[in-house]
Design a protein around this nucleic acid. Structure first.
Lengths: 126, 126
DNA sequence: TGTTGACTTAAACCATGGTTTAAGTCGTAT
DNA sequence: ATACGACTTAAACCATGGTTTAAGTCAACA
């Protein structure tokens, strides 16, 4: 199984290397292997795991909470129910946030409609 | 027409007074009237306007960009086309962000499914 | 009259989520 | 042998979006 350097992992995930180091320091990447020279080695599995962290980040889960999740993963199978509850709860929070954004979009659409109408009328009057 | 105090405006919009003061300082609330004692007076129109700012904020428009929009509003009717373009562009950005969140939700759903299956099997094995 | 309560200000403070810098260590290609 | 590129670290720095604090003013009520 191939392992990747930090630069390769960063390229695969489209994030800066510095962010990966930051996440590791924050405890979001437990047990990253190193080579003899101390360089990080990223397995496919670890890159997949980091992908999930990025999903959580993209849905605005705070790093402190992602860390709680990672800690449960590290703890092992006994925490699967807790993880399930966490993911369910997060999903609801995300859906609520999306709903809020849709609500705001309605207000923005009202503006777009008004401005469009005004612009059309200006054009017609020319 | 009734005017509202900052505490009333804050209650109506469900935001802290401190945030309203902060927004004013950042230039998002042009020409807030004051009474003889120097207290801010919020008309219905101003509260509506602040509502739009909150919509923009809830869809993650940066304050610096909201300020640009407000400046266009202050400038008058000649900027309506620019405002229209701005709102259209923002709408696209918001839709893109929502799409990203939906994508992430798919990955989260995979976890929910896995964890649920595992939990069901544990229960069945009891 | 004096003490609340609601307001004012400027400035300091805070959390979040990184990014950048400086100084150093390797492994490899010339 | 050396110089280059990729990596390492800790610590400093940054932007964003507020919140909190301290000190003061003012109106109205007891």
């Amino acid at each position: 199984m191939k392992v990747y350097s930090i630069s390769e992992a960063a390229a695969k995930l489209h994030i800066p290397e510095s962010t990966i180091r930051y996440y590791e320091k924050k405890g979001l990447l437990p047990q990253v292997e190193r080579d003899e020279a101390g360089r990080r080695l990223f397995s496919e599995d670890l890159i997949t795991f980091l992908g999930i962290i990025i999903y959580l980040k993209n849905t605005h889960m705070p790093i402190s909470r992602i860390k709680q999740y990672v800690d449960l993963v590290v703890e092992g199978e006994s925490t699967i129910e807790l993880r399930l509850e966490m993911m369910k709860q997060h999903k609801q929070a995300v859906l609520a946030e999306i709903a809020l954004m849709h609500e705001a979009l309605k207000g923005i659409d009202v503006k777009i409609t008004r401005y469009t109408t005004y612009t059309q009328e200006r054009k017609a009057a020319k």
